[in-house]
């Protein structure tokens, strides 16, 4: 079986993605009935200091993690189904959307957070 993997980003280079690995579960509040659409997950901040440390604030918790380079880079693929030649047979194609070379790993116990957040320089990435 042949699977065609196509990379559509020839000219400007593949966009780089990052995995955020959490030890735990991110749940929505019960009042939202499980729908997580349009909800803010949290804020991921990259500290300005020399070491690569990130803080991720979800709900009442602040997680601290670091950037880890993956041993094997991963590809982010997008499945495309095309109808070719008008026939009923669909042709499946995988399109490379991005490449993942590193992940941000939060493996320590989160810090409970009650009052305002005092973060310095925040570069917020919403995933």
């Amino acid at each position: 079986m042949e699977i065609r993997v196509k990379c559509g980003c020839g000219e400007e280079g593949c966009s780089e993605w990052t995995i955020v690995e959490l030890q735990g579960v991110v749940d929505s509040q019960s009042s939202f009935q499980g729908s997580v659409q349009n909800l803010e997950i949290g804020r991921l901040c990259h500290s300005d200091s020399s070491q690569e440390s990130y803080t991720f604030t979800v709900g009442y918790h602040e997680l601290t993690g670091s950037k880890v380079t993956l041993k094997k880079p991963l590809l982010v693929l997008k499945k495309l189904q095309k109808c070719t030649d008008g026939s009923s047979e669909k042709e499946t194609e995988l399109q490379v959307v991005g490449i993942i070379r590193s992940k941000i790993l939060f493996k320590t116990r989160p810090k409970p957070l009650f009052s305002g957040i005092t973060s310095l320089f925040c570069s917020c990435l919403l995933l």
């Binding site: 079986m1 030890q23 735990g24 909800l39 997950i41 116990r109 989160p110």
Partner: peptide, 29 residues
């Protein structure tokens, strides 16, 4: 509570990641 729509629950001691086999077929179909 509503101001924080998503909550984080920390799973202590182990990772809950599940490794399960994925067949190539599932990618395609």
């Amino acid at each position: 509570r509503d101001s924080r729509p998503l909550l984080f629950k920390f799973n202590e001691g182990f990772t809950n990641a599940v490794k399960r086999p994925v067949r190539m077929r599932e990618f395609l179909l």
